[in-house]
Amino acid sequence: MKYDDASWHYGGEFPADLTGEAGATHTGMYVAWALLSGLSGDIHITDFPEDIPKLKDRAVTPGAFFLSACDGKFTDEDLSDEGNAFTAHYFNFDSGQYLADYERTLGQGLPDGPNSLYYVTDSWENFDKLKPVLDRRLSEWRANAG
């Protein structure tokens, strides 16, 4: 199952003054957090052993990692069973809470408009702001899932 694909974000009303990489930031932040939080599937560990250390060492930003290591595609193969169960609940664009948390945490001071979240900078500083929110959501989910 494909959760997201950076290419889905480049068309339509995507801001003309941004590069396509900006369409990967929101998912890159989530994927990086999931992998660094132990929710990864075996595919990243066995098929891309050089990419995870770059992420852990912060030698690459979350969005850049997502584009290079995942080819801009976020699928169920990227995650463990627990990671997929949580992601289906939380990351789901239709019923999940991820984008609302992302906007509340990183959306201040961005240009106005329906696509303003594409202006969030792909940086470890922003990741560090979002990580505690994601950690808390995972803890809450774990407490209620059992």
Rank of each mutant, 00 (worst) to 15 (best):
K2I: 14
Y3G: 02
D4G: 08
D4S: 07
S7L: 10
A16V: 15
D17K: 05
E21W: 03
E21C: 01
T25N: 06
T25A: 08
H26W: 05
H26V: 11
H26L: 12
T27M: 07
G28K: 00
M29V: 02
M29G: 00
M29L: 13
Y30I: 00
V31K: 05
V31E: 09
A32T: 00
W33I: 04
W33A: 12
W33D: 01
A34M: 11
A34F: 05
L36I: 12
G38S: 09
L39V: 01
I45W: 15
D47F: 12
D47H: 11
D47V: 11
F48A: 14
F48Y: 15
F48L: 14
F48N: 09
E50R: 13
I52T: 08
P53E: 08
L55Y: 03
K56S: 11
K56Q: 10
R58Q: 10
R58F: 05
T61D: 10
G63A: 10
G63Q: 03
G63L: 04
A64Y: 00
F66S: 02
L67Y: 01
L67I: 05
S68M: 05
S68I: 03
C70G: 07
D76C: 09
D81W: 06
E82G: 08
E82K: 12
A85P: 00
H89F: 09
F93V: 10
S95T: 15
Y102G: 01
E103W: 04
T105N: 04
Q108F: 09
Q108K: 03
Q108V: 14
G109I: 04
P111L: 03
P111T: 00
D112S: 12
P114C: 13
N115W: 01
S116T: 05
L117T: 13
Y118K: 01
Y119I: 01
V120M: 06
D122P: 02
W124V: 06
F127H: 04
F127N: 05
K129T: 07
L130E: 08
L130D: 08
L130Y: 02
L130M: 15
K131E: 14
P132A: 15
V133Y: 01
R137Y: 03
L138Q: 04
L138N: 06
S139I: 12
S139D: 15
E140R: 10
W141A: 02
W141S: 02
W141E: 05
W141H: 10
R142I: 06
A143Q: 12
G146W: 11
G146R: 15
